[in-house]
Design a protein around this nucleic acid. Structure first.
Lengths: 216, 216
DNA sequence: CACAAATACGAACGTTCGTGCTATTATAAT
DNA sequence: ATTATAATAGCACGAACGTTCGTATTTGTG
């Protein structure tokens, strides 16, 4: 197959990709509310005003749709949380931005049902299979991103050298999950602000004199 | 209706109540894995070797089954976590036992799928209706129990008077949820032990000289 | 314009869902 | 032992589920 033929094929598939993307955007939103298992193809097709079979053809199975939805949600996190955070200078500013935006994506309802990955985590935490594995992978990757940001702050001398990056990353994520829980289930309107303050205090307590001002 | 007729009716209903209880025990286990919405009557009947309609007659609707399952899970928590904890002397020992047993119920798999209420929390946190309301009520009640134990410890002079019971209760619950997440989804075998240590350290940091030794 | 590929649709498959009805069995009181 | 009623089973229902298939429509390219 020549390069031009590949390009031709890619161009020809342009429309399919576009609708596939719109399907996945809706799927992520729906799944964040109804759960990845509760997500149904008929319901999704109805919401998009298209046929069940037409939608189905894009994925071939429900499981593939679920996996694609997870990937889409992940890309949304990269786009709205990680990428803008990475734009900040390395060290504490970047780390704090990562934390703040991770909390923000729930407040701003990036996903209709709150945090897609937290919901998926607890939906699949006692199952087996590729869907569970993919969710676990995403969460490990996210923890890794957080951990590397901590490591970066340590390398910059913004936080004490004694800090364990993995440990602190996990602590931060725990505070966030707790906040999501209080905010979404218990309707605690101040939960997110309290979590932001908790993380901020924790980071400040670890900061060195060399650390620049990082929270506006 | 006379009193004896009521007693008679109650006795007559003995068998029904027994099977109802066995249904609910299985329902709680199944729901802790598949979710309260994924819990299906046919599947449950099959697991118990009884007919769908026979099982259904005990509840009248799926929603009633879900609510009854929530109540049953709650009673299991009271039985296996709260009651034995309350048996400890008021103050720090009782508070610590509450924390430790709350973590323990997941390690010991009181529910097949880990923590019934944490799973249900994140399944229903962006829905409306009586099921969600019941789950939220249970979690608020649990937080209240935890908070009252903190208050008791403060009244005993076991922890500093400056401690905010609601705040500390929430912190403890957050650590627990984070541990469940790491233990169940990420297969972190040390997550529960780490959470136990985290809470223990936190409590010790708040303890007064008057506080008795409380962790074996 | 014509052709071929990509895309979407409609209908139907077998299964399972929750939920009614009716009949049958089990049980406790008389 | 008879009887009233509680408890369970059997059967059927309409709807929704994921999935398959053949056909129609749209699309970009030659």
């Amino acid at each position: 197959m020549t390069a031009s033929a590949q390009v031709g094929a890619r161009v020809r598939r342009a429309r399919g990709i576009r609708t596939r993307e719109s399907i996945l955007r809706a799927a992520v939103d729906l799944a964040s509310v109804e759960g990845l298992e509760g997500l149904s193809i008929g319901r999704l097709a109805q919401e998009l005003g298209m046929s069940k079979s037409g939608l189905f053809a894009h994925f071939g199975s429900k499981e593939e749709l679920q996996l694609a939805a997870i990937d889409t949600a992940n890309e949304m996190i990269i786009e709205h949380v990680i990428r803008p955070a990475i734009a900040n200078p390395r060290g504490m500013p970047r780390l704090w931005s990562l934390c703040s935006r991770w909390l923000e994506h729930v407040e701003k309802k990036l996903f209709r049902g709150g945090c897609f990955f937290t919901a998926a985590s607890f939906e699949y935490d006692s199952r087996t299979g590729v869907v569970r594995d993919r969710i676990a992978l995403m969460m490990r990757t996210w923890l890794g991103t957080l951990s590397r940001a901590v490591e970066g702050a340590r390398a910059c001398g913004h936080i004490k050298a004694s800090v364990d990056p993995d440990q602190l990353a996990f602590e931060i994520e725990t505070v966030a999950i707790g906040a999501f829980w209080a905010f979404l289930l218990l309707d605690d309107q101040e939960a997110m602000a309290k979590a932001r303050a908790t993380i901020l205090n924790r980071l400040k307590s670890l900061a060195t004199p060399k650390c620049p001002r990082f929270a506006r």
